[in-house]
């Protein structure tokens, strides 16, 4: 079976996306006779690529002119599939990956699936596992026709390193690209620098139970003093309490800190998938029956603001003690 891994060199999340594709390659029991990396780029031809955890038989560097248009990528992919057909294409977990997987499969009469957590080849067909019913269940499907175009599931943050590409394997693809008729003009406004949310040890996630913006602002202060990054469930983000780039859950970030404190979050399926990889989960909720307690290691039933304010005090006292301790120790050293 021949497979291609489709990535965009200019993506902000290239190394994380490669990690997610690696994770899929790791899971899958399928042996590939041939795996190629298909790397899109815009201006500067890349020399490095993210590390892929399987031997690559070739690397195709594909120049794309209209990077903001999925239709441009699609045309290129269709052309490329004509030149070197593949049985399986793995796309990234983001919106672009989902769109390309779906539309390419349609154009090539293949099958597609998104948010794929696992896949394996069983005789001539491909089996995939993906979430259904609002992340409350997962389903196993058989995909019926190749090429199989899969967008992989999001994974906790674990970017792979960039490595120098083997020159001999590289082939550069330059194809004609037509200007889109429907875009009169476009403008890209870059996001502020990424939050440290994906890559931190301590996260405080706030939900609807926080009650109001004022309380959330207090919680942000607490997060600051205890050294936590703050995140929000969809309602907390929709209430404009927490910035949208801090949305946790199926349609936001998947986080895996050492410690996650979920405060006032009820724990819906689409939310829980965002934190369930955390190493330790503390849930605080006034409702002892809230589903969040099903995925928590430790739970406190009570008012989240009161408890977190107390926690802040305890942590600060301990910190100060330690600092005093340090000073005492250093004195001993100097004496």
């Amino acid at each position: 079976m021949k497979a291609a891994l489709v990535l965009s060199f200019d993506s902000n999340s290239l190394q994380q996306q490669a990690h997610e594709i690696n994770a899929m390659l790791n899971h899958t029991g399928t042996q590939f006779s041939n795996v190629e990396l298909w790397l899109f780029y815009k201006d500067r031809k890349p020399e490095f690529s993210p590390e892929i955890f399987c031997p690559l038989s070739g690397i195709k560097l594909i120049q794309v002119e209209y990077v903001h248009l999925p239709e441009s990528y699609l045309d290129l992919l269709v052309a490329l599939m004509g030149q070197c057909p593949m049985d399986l294409l793995l796309f990234t977990s983001d919106g672009l990956g989902q769109e390309l997987a779906t539309r390419l499969a349609y154009r090539l009469n293949g099958s597609s699936a998104l948010k794929v957590e696992d896949c394996r080849l069983i005789r001539d067909t491909l089996e995939v596992i993906k979430p259904v019913y609002g992340n409350n269940l997962s389903a196993r499907f058989v995909l019926k026709s190749s090429p199989y175009c899969l967008s992989v599931a999001k994974q906790p943050f674990h970017p792979v390193k960039m490595i120098l590409m083997e020159l001999l394997k590289i082939k550069t693809i330059l194809l004609n690209q037509t200007q889109p008729w429907w875009v009169k003009e476009h403008l890209t406004i870059l996001d502020p620098p990424k939050t440290g949310l994906s890559n931190t040890d301590l996260v405080l996630v706030v939900g609807q139970g926080a009650g109001n913006k004022k309380t959330v602002d207090v919680l942000k202060g607490i997060a600051d003093t205890i050294g936590a990054e703050i995140g929000g469930s969809r309602p907390a983000v929709m209430n404009a309490w927490i910035d949208i780039n801090r949305l946790i859950g199926a349609s936001g970030l998947i986080i895996s800190p050492k410690l996650c404190i979920a405060a006032g979050v009820s724990g819906t399926g689409v939310f829980s998938v965002g934190i369930k990889n955390s190493r330790f989960i503390v849930a605080i909720n006034i409702d002892s029956k809230a589903p969040i307690f099903q995925i928590a290691d430790v739970g406190i039933v009570g008012d989240l603001a009161t408890i977190l304010l107390e926690l802040e005090k305890v942590i600060l006292t301990d910190k100060n003690k330690k600092q005093v301790h340090h000073i005492v120790e250093s004195r001993i050293e100097t004496q």
């Binding site: 609807q208 139970g209 926080a210 109001n212 309602p235 929709m238 209430n239 006032g264 006034i286």
Partner: peptide, 11 residues
Amino acid sequence: WGPEKITEERE
């Protein structure tokens, strides 16, 4: 009516 419903209503 827990705090979550009250917040939902407020919003």
